[in-house]
């Protein structure tokens, strides 16, 4: 099968890969670039476990083709912490025990970060609706929502 060469930026670094035109961005990330932090829970855009940012927009990477990453910037869970320092959301998820099995966690973190970038003072309802595209089967969402609200609060007071 003929492959297409793609040049893109992943977590700030230039990246190049060859992929079949039918391959999803998720498959490319996981199988060709060893970035397995994004998970496939459904492959149909229903669970959000594969959430990544594409040119600053939150997408399900299972619904994006690998070739569509050409010339664009992809951000994944692997780029969220800065070196040894966790992103405040990552830290709050741990403090609030907002994960049990942890397989949905990367998707939730990427989605929650996208929320806080556009709204630093979301209501509980806004958090719940923003994260409605991410499925978690373990937690009942309670601790996830609290972790996001608590992060937003801390980030606001840090800026104040």
């Amino acid at each position: 099968m003929t492959k297409t060469a793609v040049s893109t930026t992943i977590n700030g670094d230039a990246a190049e890969f060859l992929c079949e035109t039918g391959e999803t961005l998720l498959d490319v990330l996981r199988d060709r670039l060893d970035l397995t932090g994004s998970k496939e829970g459904c492959g149909t855009g229903d669970c959000g476990a594969c959430s990544v940012m594409l040119d600053g927009r939150l997408v399900c990477s299972c619904l994006v083709l690998g070739v569509e990453a050409q010339g664009r910037a992809v951000e994944t869970i692997e780029g969220m912490a800065e070196g040894e320092t966790l992103h405040p959301l990552q830290q709050k998820f741990l403090e609030h025990a907002a994960l049990q099995c942890g397989v949905c966690t990367p998707g939730f973190l990427v989605a929650a970060k996208a929320l806080l970038e556009v709204n630093d003072d979301p209501s509980e309802s806004q958090v719940r609706y923003w994260l409605a595209g991410n499925l978690c089967r373990c937690t009942g969402y309670d601790k996830i929502v609290r972790a996001v609200l608590d992060t937003a609060k801390d980030m606001r007071s840090a800026r104040a």
Binding site: R30, D31, L35, T36, G37, S38, K39, E40, T76, I77, E78, M80, A81, L86, Q90, F93, L94, E95, A97, L99, G102, V103, T105, P106, L109
Partner: peptide, 23 residues
């Protein structure tokens, strides 16, 4: 008490290896 889980960092950074994550 409620200490942070020991496998927590792996699971919030995408480092944890689930079933489909190895080759």
């Amino acid at each position: 008490t409620r200490p942070l889980r020991p496998d927590g960092v792996d699971k919030v950074t995408g480092r944890a290896r689930f079933g489909a994550d190895i080759s």
